[in-house]
Design a protein around this nucleic acid. Sequence first.
DNA 1: ATGGTCGACTCTCGA
Length: 273
Amino acid sequence: MKSAQVFERDPGRLVVATFNVNSIRARLHVLEPYLSEHQVDILCLQETKVRDDDFPTAFFEDMGYQVRFSGQKSYNGVAVASRSEISDVQVGFGDDRDNESDRARLLRCRVEDIHLVNAYVPQGRELGHPYFAYKIDWFSRLERLFATAYSSKDQVLWCGDLNVAPTDLDVYEPDKHREHVCFHDSVREAFSRVVQSFGFVDLLRRFHPDEAVFSFYDYRQRGAIKRGQGWRIDHLLATSSLADRALDCWVDLEPRLMEKPSDHTVLLGAFRR
DNA sequence: ATGGTCGACTCTCGA
């Protein structure tokens, strides 16, 4: 027998994970054992870096998941894999400005009673760069999307690589990163406006209010993990009615997940079903 | 130290 079910899956528990994979095809050998050994009911992926025609659909189906994806050649790309049915899939913002990048960075769908918004927010490159303006604008577009397409009373889960460390606790040596595109005041404010406008609860902080918990360690930086030189830029944000069902939220630092060239690890949230 | 190293894809871009 294959080691497909070496753990006890709790049907009363819904586990959602988000993972920036930096190429899905290069990370299947890591996901295969991970999904075999952990309860992950819904998996949100970013940076799949693959065109839809080449997406490894069969891998997820063989693992017992439905999967929906939206990618482009070389860059970006998002996907949602789920053990229960995925419906109402929408790609991009659905506004009149969607381009190829937007469609490969935002995938929304419904799974059970949860409205999932899986996002790979533009990194921004550097302050003053057009990509940075695009990033700031992305948060405005998200704010409008939540206001128009959802109700804050719904069970909405906004997750993904949001490329922002919200507070000083969310990056090592914060004073060294005030001008960083993932930490500058303007980005934190843009993010915070979305969070506050829709009443999102930061799930990691709900369970670990004062702890430095990082989801990203730059693999170009030698010894970043052992020196604790990380960032918390991957997030699970839930509306209050969904947050009320949350049982736990944690980052999995299993070394296998963190092996180069993976620089993000998996962030998970568990909810009552 | 202003570096470092990957992945996808043509060699440079983006992170």
